[in-house]
Design a protein around this nucleic acid. Structure first.
Lengths: 132, 132
DNA sequence: ATAGGGCTTCCAGTTACAGGAAGGTCAAGG
DNA sequence: CCTTGACCTTCCTGTAACTGGAAGCCCTAT
């Protein structure tokens, strides 16, 4: 397969696949004309990466996951630990967003949103957060 | 005030304040020796920025908020519209994270996490997401 | 005179790509 | 045979919002 075909099949932009090669995540073969050639195994790996990225794993985490995936002697505990780390990261981000949302929603609700200049949102940003 | 003092007071790293000057968010005065000098008004602006950033507004949104803040003739509707846009962004991110979390948690739960290599997490990444 | 702490500018690195330029390759059509 | 268009290649730049570090000036205290 050429890069276009594998990109389509893996659901990744060709640009991204070239980038993954750059950083050593995959190593496609090369045709005589310089074109990259991908095997089914490459496609499989790319699809794996696409899904791992889709779950929010960082590139480095994906690199580790891929290594574990290809290590027949891995312990599932290592995979689980990595996944739990990431789960905790997700939870931390969600909590941060939820707190932002809470404060922002409160300000938005207090704002009339009309032609007048008085605005509780700007006031809220200008003043120290009230300790409620 | 010098940059160290205002950084402390605004709760922003000095580096960040220099960066904000670079991109034109604030324009401190300068002493004869080249040191930046900040007034109370500058501090006020920086604290405003710190809080807006803390709520997740982008730098460009902060720029707009600051302009609205300083425009006596603003309409609160404009502020509210911006805040609501950002609220929607937050909601979108939270939904994305929640979906990641859902799928990932499911995989983690299915994984024994022991010394054996069998791992539902890796299987889940390797296979097309099941349509449940 | 020197030691320290704070200040300056400038450059590089971070994450995970995306956009675009300049140019080679290949199959089909005229 | 030539051209056209769709692919492909590499290389360079830009993104967001800083952070870290180097080299060097400024000021105060000892």
């Amino acid at each position: 397969m050429n890069i276009g075909e594998v990109a389509e099949a893996a659901g990744l932009p060709a640009k991204t696949i070239r980038y993954y090669e750059d950083i050593g995540l995959i190593t496609p073969l090369r045709e005589a004309n310089g074109y990259r050639r991908f095997t089914d195994a490459h496609l499989h790996k790319l699809a794996f990466l696409a899904r791992a990225r889709g779950l929010g794993f960082s590139i480095e985490q994906c690199r580790t996951l891929l290594a574990l995936y290809e290590d027949r002697a891995r312990a599932s505990a290592d995979v689980k630990a990595l996944a739990e780390t990431h789960l905790a990261e997700i939870d931390a981000k969600m909590a941060e967003l939820a707190e932002m949302r809470r404060v922002l929603a409160e300000l938005v609700e207090a704002c009339a949103g009309d032609h007048r200049p008085d605005c509780p949102i700007l006031l809220g940003l200008a003043q120290a957060p009230k300790t409620d």
